[in-house]
């Protein structure tokens, strides 16, 4: 059984947010939802100023607090390390969101159609629907309606239903088909490395051996599957700049 992990190389990250956008299109997330989020930080005082970037997907923790608190088993960890949400079980209690120290859970407060409309585009325009057959958004990925894993659950983002929690799935629908997560695939500088950490011959395992990975909020004991190399853990000395219209 593979054990999936991700390495984020902060010496390579350009902070371009292509990963955020690839995730958004691949997973059809609605307005202000970014399962992958890239912080842009400034630190110090002119002229001794430094900049840094920090991509933050769901950490897919081995000791996942969100899984422990879910009262209905909607949030669960698979044997291959991926932490997922079953939208058909989720009751929208948001305990996972409160328990998670990383802020990666996004709650659907709105019907998805309304959240897409809020982007300023009328997808019901008859000239568009004549092409798209009324699919909202027109780039809707049908993979999210399928069932995944041994458990056969609709866990690849579901339908962004109102009242359920969602977050990064490591693109389980792609990974199960032998593809890389959308963020990893698109990264222009290959700052994101994804793969099976249990196999010593994978690129990610070589990365982990060659560098000294660290974890976000190591002290919380969450045992994340996402590792960082280069850079340093963020501190309160950092100021976030250039926030998108996102819930963070």
């Amino acid at each position: 059984m593979a054990k999936y992990g991700m390495v984020v190389d902060l010496e390579r990250c350009q902070g371009c947010r292509a990963c955020m956008e690839a995730c958004k299109v691949e997973n059809n997330t609605t307005e202000s939802m970014f399962w992958m989020y890239v912080f842009r930080f400034e630190e110090g005082t002119y002229p001794d100023t430094k900049m840094s970037f920090l991509p933050r997907p769901c950490q897919h923790c081995d000791n996942a607090p969100c899984v422990k608190v879910c009262p209905v088993g909607a949030r669960y960890k698979r044997e291959d390390g991926i932490v997922l949400t079953d939208p058909d079980r989720c009751i929208g209690c948001r305990y996972c969101s409160l328990a998670c120290p990383y802020g990666v859970n996004y709650f659907n407060y709105q019907k998805p159609q309304d959240a897409y409309y809020a982007l300023g585009i009328d997808w019901e325009d008859p000239d568009v629907t004549s092409v798209t057959g009324g699919v909202v958004p027109p780039y809707k990925n049908p993979d999210h309606d399928l069932l995944y894993g041994e458990e056969q659950r609709r866990t690849a983002g579901g339908g962004h239903a109102k009242g359920v929690m969602e977050k990064c799935t490591f693109c389980v629908h792609r990974v199960e088909n032998g593809m890389l997560p959308a963020c990893v695939e698109t990264c222009p500088t290959n700052a994101l490395v994804f793969g099976d950490v249990s196999d010593p011959d994978t690129p990610i395992s070589r990365y982990v051996r060659a560098r000294e990975p660290w974890h976000l909020l190591e002290e919380t004991g969450t045992e994340p599957s996402v590792m960082y190399v280069g850079g340093k853990p963020p501190t309160l000395a950092l100021t976030e700049i250039e926030r998108p219209k996102a819930r963070v």
Partner: peptide
Amino acid sequence: ARNYLFGPLDTVAAESPLA
């Protein structure tokens, strides 16, 4: 409970004729 709180499950998938 979700039904009680939010009404019927309302997803894009459910509305898509192509799906």
